[in-house]
Design a protein around this nucleic acid. Structure first.
Lengths: 209, 209
DNA sequence: AAGTTCCGTAACTAACAGTTGCGGAACGCT
DNA sequence: AGCGTTCCGCAACTGTTAGTTACGGAACTT
């Protein structure tokens, strides 16, 4: 926790030092982010235009570009504000925690704008490593920490084998969801979380059913 | 199998009936597809421009648009010609087959242009359902058939439980690879195929190690 | 009051997808 | 051979969008 408050988001700093001259209107930041989310969920990443975001936010285009260097960074920050990962609540068992986390991920991918945004963002990330780094630092990593600690608690309690491959578990639970969303287009089986978890427990569970 | 030979690829038909007038130069088709693959592997989907493909193929831009309605469809067809799935050879055991298929997928994703193309294609597919359908029909489905039949042979032989969830197995083996490639950016663990397969066998294997 | 940065407006550049019209060449049909 | 059709390259074109710039004026700090 030696990190400072934020600075991770690639929001543009105010010109020069931060305090000279007229300050930016913070309400405007909010209006822009809200308009971005709204438009995003309606039309998906590719069809979001900065001009339309500006129109809906009641703001000018340069006002947006003063704050974010690119459309893609604006979108990432908009997503982050919507996706604060929930508290890391401990249900008492690793199985319960992992099930809850998987269900929560399903819910985020299917019931928030993220599902509509991700395809476009993936393309952008592949072409822009700075963007990729912020997405991973701001969204992927914080979530992964929750998953990781659920697994580690399970190992400490003896519910999971000490040989458990943590990354394999994470990728096995989360990977197929992204695969369906981005590649196959298949709907997500409502029993998925349970079935995938059973797979993991069959291999790494110390006390199988 | 009531489908006719192809017609799946969204290549544009010759004007009107196919036989009147000057026929298209078939060498040109090849030159365009080759140039597309080449450029694709150098710069990735987003930075491929139709004008540059035309230049490298020694061909005009309208010649390309006469054959394919959109850049994205050209790219899909270029990928298909490169990715004819190998013969469905039966190694004798389901474990061996699935291991080979997984390794082959890793190889395709990391050592052919597909890895560089996929992010952009994913974005395009999300915005264009016709394109998505051809990608799935031409690339995903044929490959899935191989995986599926490997699992089904395993069930028939008694290596896998009769309760085996075929789609879950497929998604579990393939999903995490796409997840790493498209989202996390993590390199793929060389032991992945074996480890993921062990997960599957622990759950569905009738005769565990 | 001076200096700085914000704001909206409006015009602008640059890339790129995809189109169109032209003159000419190549083919099938009769 | 000649006609109709479609291909070909060329070149110019439309349309969309990201991102920029110059301006006049407003808001804030010292």
């Amino acid at each position: 926790m030696s990190e400072s408050e934020s600075e991770l988001a690639p929001r543009r700093p105010g010109g020069r030092g931060s305090d000279r001259g007229r300050p930016r209107d913070p309400d405007m930041d909010q209006a822009i982010l809200r308009a971005t989310i709204e438009l995003l969920s309606e039309v998906g990443y590719v069809r979001v235009t900065v001009a339309e975001v500006a129109r809906r936010a009641g703001v000018s285009k340069p006002a947006i570009y003063r704050r974010w260097a690119q459309k893609s960074q604006l979108v990432v920050e908009a997503m982050v504000t919507q996706m604060r990962p929930g508290k890391d609540h401990d249900s008492g068992s690793a199985a319960g925690d992992l099930l809850a986390l998987t269900e929560a991920l399903i819910s985020v991918l299917t019931r928030t704008p993220l599902g509509r945004v991700l395809p476009g963002l993936v393309a952008e990330m592949a072409a822009d490593s700075v963007l990729a780094a912020s997405y991973r630092t701001l969204i992927i990593e914080p979530n992964r920490r929750h998953w990781r600690s659920a697994v580690e608690r399970g190992i400490a309690r003896g519910e999971l084998s000490t040989e458990t491959d943590v990354d394999l578990v994470l990728n096995t639970l989360a990977g197929p969801l992204y695969f369906c969303l981005l590649i196959t287009g298949d709907p997500i089986d409502p029993g998925y979380a349970r079935a995938a978890l059973d797979l993991v427990l069959a291999r790494f569970g110390a006390a199988p059913d």
